[in-house]
Amino acid sequence: MKYKKLFQQYNLSGNHLENRFLMAPMTRSRASQPGDIPNALMAEYYAQRSTAGIIITEAVQVSLQGKGYAKTPGIYSKEQKEGWKLVTEAVHKNGSKIFLQLWHVGRVSSSKVNGLQPIAPSALLAQNTNVYIFDGAVNGDATFVPVEQPREMDKTDINTVIDEFVKGAKNAIEAGFDGVEIHGANGYLIDQFLRSNSNTRTDEYGGTKQKRIRLLIEISQAVANAVGKEKTGVRLSPFISFKDMNDSEILHTIMLAVKELNKLDIAYIHLCEADWDDAPQIPVDFRIDLRSNFKNTIIATGNKTPEEGEMLLQENLVDLIGFGRNFLTNPDYPARVERNLSLNQIIDNHTLFGGGTERGYTDYPFMK
């Protein structure tokens, strides 16, 4: 077999995976309104793609305050929890595993999305950053609007956010998920605390690298205590700086966080890598350092080809490979790779974010 490691079974902290293909988180904005509730169409979408050994859901807000984009699903209400049961049952029926990604956007939001002023570690506006709504949209397309000035979080806000992540994790497990992933990447709330340019606090949550990682570690510890360390993963993006997140100290900060997460013995670290054509490559020495400082599963996601994924697995730098766009357009992606078949390449950008029907969502053809 050409991709021996990719098609090898894997034990993820007690979860038996049929292969090492991971369907990466992709925001699709299909939740039912009002209430941001997962639905049967979403269940069909995930079930189609349960050819992956494991699926990480789209980002799921832990509260209304944590919402940054229209029609994204939540995990804080009874109705949302019941909706997610449709998804987990469908995926498990097909033999795959599924983790829910817990999300708080922090300053990457607008009152036009959730009716609330954004919150952040510091009252710093994210420059050149937009979110989207559907009000007044043409042909159902998303309408992008600039983020708004956030207010600085006080200690009560911080404690509330920690509690929201815990509640979201508990709700996810009750909804049938095999575990949860804490979203600490891509310029959202936890990432905002990690970076010196977005976190200018002088209290116990800012001022030094050790203090800037505190919220991530406290949330991770609280979630692991609530649902089990073997059901807890963390996503990080040290080499991604969009949403006004350029920070010269971030690599050292991330590695400090990795060492602390290793002490917590969580299930995995999910490295979110840039996925555009001229994106920076992850240095091999960073991957080696990550492997030496974290003993459990490491996931790499970011425009990977099967060849690149197989190489990283063969070199023991990572354990699972995340694929996003290829799963979006090819629900049977692993089988196409195994049989060296052509892929559906065209992504319908008009239905990438939003759309209430199967078009551009569940109507991508399976191989013949």
Rank of each mutant, 00 (worst) to 15 (best):
M1L: 06
K2C: 05
Y3F: 08
Y3D: 13
Y3P: 15
F7W: 09
N15E: 03
N15Y: 06
H16L: 01
H16G: 00
P25N: 03
S29K: 06
R30F: 02
P34S: 11
I37E: 06
A40H: 12
Y46I: 00
Y46E: 05
A52V: 01
I55W: 04
E58N: 10
L64F: 00
A70Y: 04
T72E: 05
T72P: 01
T72I: 01
P73E: 08
G74T: 00
Y76L: 01
K78Q: 15
E79Y: 06
K81M: 09
G83I: 00
W84E: 07
E89S: 12
A90M: 03
H92E: 14
N94T: 03
S96K: 08
Q101G: 14
L102M: 11
H104S: 13
H104A: 04
K112M: 07
V113R: 15
P118A: 10
I119L: 10
L124T: 05
A126G: 05
Q127P: 04
N128E: 10
T129L: 06
T129C: 13
V131S: 09
I133S: 07
F134Y: 13
A137M: 09
V138E: 13
V145D: 14
V145Q: 15
V147Y: 05
F165Q: 02
V166Q: 12
I173D: 13
E174K: 12
E174L: 06
A175T: 08
F177E: 14
F177V: 12
G184Y: 08
L189D: 13
I190V: 07
D191M: 03
N199I: 00
N199F: 03
T200E: 13
D203V: 06
D203E: 08
E204V: 06
G206W: 07
T208I: 03
K209F: 01
R212F: 04
L216Q: 12
S220T: 14
N225C: 09
E230S: 15
E230W: 12
T232V: 09
T232F: 13
V234D: 15
V234N: 14
L236Y: 03
I240W: 10
S241I: 01
F242T: 01
N246D: 11
S248T: 02
E249N: 07
L251W: 02
K263A: 06
D265S: 10
D265G: 12
Y268F: 11
Y268D: 13
H270T: 07
C272G: 05
C272F: 01
W276S: 06
D277A: 01
P283D: 02
F286K: 11
R287I: 00
I288F: 01
D289F: 01
D289V: 00
F294A: 10
N296P: 13
T297W: 10
I299Q: 15
N303A: 09
E310F: 09
E310Y: 12
Q314F: 03
L317I: 04
D319H: 09
L320M: 08
N326A: 08
T329F: 06
P331A: 11
D332T: 02
Y333E: 13
Y333I: 05
A335T: 14
A335Y: 14
A335S: 14
A335G: 13
R336D: 10
R339T: 10
N349D: 08
L352C: 04
L352F: 09
F353D: 14
T357R: 04
R359L: 02
G360F: 07
G360P: 07
Y364P: 15
Y364I: 11
